[in-house]
Nucleic acid binder design. Structure first.
Lengths: 209, 209, 209, 209
DNA sequence: GCCTAACCGAGACGGTACGTCACGTCTTTTA
DNA sequence: TAAAAGACGTGACGTACCGTCTCGGTTAGGC
């Protein structure tokens, strides 16, 4: 669902010429192309996007109310799909979740899209809220579920705040992808983080057999 | 030390009227005042800063090459001083380091300065590098020292990558201050993180005495 | 015809919103108003003209490439229309031509427009060329025609360079309007100049009949 | 006498270091050099003059109150000296006077100094007045004397306004030097103008012998 | 032979205007 | 009615000069 989707849900009689979906795609892909070509985010004006996409400015403003709204949609389009969890254990599920983060970090660096747009989104409280609600929160809920299931199944100490635990898992990977991208994101990083943390977060005594 | 201070260390004959330090302070404090007054970072033009500080635009450009460079100095000025480490144990030192981060997060939210300017700095690789080198790296080196000392003193498993360990400590706090500021930063958070992580990172057996 | 009218004669499909002629008029009249109000020419910035006309700077620069080009159009707009020649004799035609010059001189002084803008235009070779070609040259051609017709009809010595003769007629009036405006431009001046000069320039003997 | 010579006539105790005349010359010649190098007058800023002359801005402002005052002195310095009149006849004197004008016109075109600075001076009423009083008026008085002597000696009709007569002589040359520099200033021009005009301005009957 | 006032270069200072660019809105024509 | 095109008022950009004001460092008299 688009932020720009202030269009009524019930299709409305649809008078006049309908909006072209091709144009919508052309705009979003125009933004991505520019970012991939190394254009700094600050140099990305609506005017330039319109020029690149071969589109009138009004056509953009008809869909998004400004630069930030547009970027949220770009961010969402580029976001990898939610990972499929194996469900074999809390540990395996966490590894898959972190591995998704890791791969996104890799993609960001290689494509130069995510890192900057993400940071830009962070600048605008309104936009960040939209991005948080539609992308981050669901994935976070997923992770919390996994952790709670871990507590129920005896894979995680029950006296631990699962929110804090999640912050630890995510935080370690976040530092690597956002704060210290130069440190690299080696292949086994997700497993290493999960195992290291679990080693300490597991109950001191094994659950009653 | 100022970013703008690329003036040679050996004073150089110092010809012409010297730059006024009062003006320099007025500019930086003008930026802070505006941010504290709730002006969105995007609305902070050089022109407006100049107007607020009662200063000519050229006087700003004489010291900083643009908005970002100026913000790095603002960031640096607002940065709390390096904490004094008790040195009683690795655990206590880490708590103090994380507590500093936590308090900065609190201050940021209350003053509205840090969060936005920090994010803005992150947008520009060049500026981020300057900030990273002059503020982040030293503090990180401090933390790594603490961790290595911990390994030597038997407070931390020796088979652990201290860099990864540091990412975990910092990351957990970072998620709370940057990504989820709404979750709050309760008083005992630093201790909770450190103890929780150490609980698992400590060696299974005490080092041979 | 406007200097700015480098737009092709054949209309070109005329895409996009057309330029507003009202805006064009507002700008030129804004300049005139300022000059009439006694603003020194040196204080006439594009910024001020835009402010006065209630117009964006870009709207001015879209039409004129700078201050001088704009002034040429102001000059042209304020220029009195070409006089209608009686055609009764060379002498009468010349009086009418000079009388036009005299009246322009009077208007210039009273309105404060012409004198300064004219001199300003003179400063820029490029602008002067444009003004010369579109305003001065046609009127000069007219005068040369009158003089040549005078030679043909026996009103002017045939051994005289008509260009030099014209310079004498025009020059006398020019000194009064530009160089010595304080000397005044009394009513009969045009006739006095023409008659005085003709008295000497006529052939000593009437042309052979 | 310099415009800048607001220094009191009675020397005043003259304490402190006296102003350097060498500096004064360097500034004026710096302006001339720039003009000769084809720098447009509009691009001649005080800052640039100071840079060229290797002089502080304050040193210029200490002597002249602004750009225009400086230019008047430049103009005066470049002005050719008053011609020496042969005194053999009004006609010969007038030829010499006009020849001076012609040569100044030639020099202007070749050196590119006079034309622009002259026009610039014309822009500022105050400056023009100073230039008019110190350069033009004396030469004009000289010419009027010559003409009056001509009337007395029977070389000029007595029913003619000598001021108007002078405007005719000067005007014809002025048109050639200022308004139509492309027409050229051929060698015999001064004589041609004087003779052509005199031919008509002389009394119809020769003075009583 | 100092003293000291004014000069000199350099350049910082608060300003104003430059000409360009992007903003978000608006009017055109064309489809 | 949507779409491309582009004009419109607004206002920030970074630069260049304006004329004034410090700076440190000469240069002359007058003591």
């Amino acid at each position: 669902m688009s932020l720009a989707a202030d269009r009524p849900a019930q299709p409305a009689p649809a008078r006049g010429r309908p909006r072209s979906e091709a144009v919508e795609r052309a705009i979003i892909e125009g933004v991505m192309k520019l970012l991939e070509d190394g254009v700094p985010l600050a140099d990305l004006s609506i005017e330039r996007v319109a020029r690149t996409a071969g589109v009138g400015k009004a056509t953009i403003y008809r869909r998004w109310s400004g630069k930030e709204e547009l970027f949220v949609d770009v961010l969402r389009t580029a976001e990898p799909p939610d990972p499929e969890l194996p469900g074999t254990s809390m540990r395996d599920d966490l590894v898959v979740l972190l591995e998704t983060l890791r791969r996104r970090g890799l993609a960001s660096r290689s494509s130069a899209i995510m890192h900057n747009v993400y940071v830009q989104a962070k600048c605008s409280p309104r936009i960040w809220a939209a991005y948080e609600a539609s992308v981050i929160a669901p994935r976070r809920a997923l992770a919390l579920d996994v952790l709670r299931r871990g507590q129920r199944d005896g894979e995680l100490r029950t006296d631990i705040d699962v929110e804090l635990a999640n912050d630890m898992f995510v935080g370690a990977m976040l530092v690597r992808t956002v704060l210290r991208p130069d440190a690299g994101l080696p292949e086994g990083l997700a497993e290493e983080i999960v195992d290291t943390l679990i080693a300490g977060l597991r109950p001191v005594r094994p659950p009653a057999q």
